[in-house]
Nucleic acid binder design. Structure first.
Lengths: 160, 160
DNA sequence: ATGGGTGCAAATCCTTTGCACTCGG
DNA sequence: CCGAGTGCAAAGGATTTGCACCCAT
């Protein structure tokens, strides 16, 4: 499912208002960068996107502080793909913001992220957790291997 | 499946010999700490375990350097549960060292890790990746929620 | 006005690296 | 012996925090 950036941005404004938090242009700039990227950006990527945008650059600290807000609001999901830093993506599986659970395939060669979702998988995961007396809340599934492009360009490559 | 620490340790010695690497007591101490813990330890945990052991403490750098060896040999698996640091566990899904693919349930309340494995799940994951033209190599599934103990001690708690 | 937000730089946290010294083979 | 291993401390990268100043409300 595609998420509409503009709509998410509007929801964020409302979220801020509802929580009596100032709607600063820095916050909006950071939110926009994520909502309209459609990709999984790092904090640094986000700062870069914002800097390229019309409004001036935003301090690193502010980027992180805004990310905390966005993740807290459920409008943005935080991912840790084990690269030593986090990545952020619009939409959420848990929050009120919309989106739906989906999993990630991360290319070991070029880093590209492919997504997919499957109800049967989600159900099975929940079930298996319950079988070991665990009450699942949310989960992360990351598949590492080669994306289509890298399979073609390097057919013999072994995923790391 | 239970892994025998002593056997893993022996395999590690052989691995070192086969690669013409010195078998130092520091390396063995670090390996032991992991092989006999049965838990998912952080680098710091490992250093602590080693320090408590008979032989003297081992420098942080050595712990990390040995971990690299162990992970490289396939005798130890590295995990990143998004806590900001890594954890290590004996056995491996990929290496020659044995073990088999299994997934983790991480308690959001107490941090305990429960494991399980399921063939059907493994197959489904591989299949779903291939459906989006991705060639899977390995994956990580982490389920966050409440472990049995924490469900009982706090029945109304909502997993974070 | 005015309380929170922002930027900068200093501080943290985990992990890596440089280098002189020590030890296993 | 000798090259690789070790410890210490300094360096690194991502993220957080303290504090004086600035801006939405």
């Amino acid at each position: 499912m595609k998420v509409d950036g503009g709509q998410l941005l509007e929801t964020f404004r409302r979220y801020l208002r509802d929580h009596s938090l100032p709607v600063t242009h820095q916050r909006l700039a950071v939110a926009e960068a994520i909502f309209f990227s459609g990709d999984h950006l790092s904090a640094e990527d986000i700062a870069g996107q914002v800097a390229k945008g019309g409004a001036g650059p935003v301090g690193t600290a502010t980027v992180y502080r805004t990310l905390e807000l966005l993740v807290g609001s459920g409008l943005v999901t935080e991912h840790d793909f084990g690269e030593g830093f986090k990545r952020y993506e619009p939409g959420s599986s848990g929050g009120e913001g919309g989106g739906q659970p989906h999993e990630h395939c991360i290319c070991s060669s070029c880093g590209a992220v492919t997504e997919f979702s499957n109800d049967r998988l989600e159900r099975m995961i929940a079930l298996l957790a319950e079988e070991v007396a665990f009450r699942p809340h949310h989960h992360r599934l990351e598949i590492y291997g080669l994306c289509r492009r890298c399979q073609q360009s390097n057919p013999l490559a072994r995923a790391r």
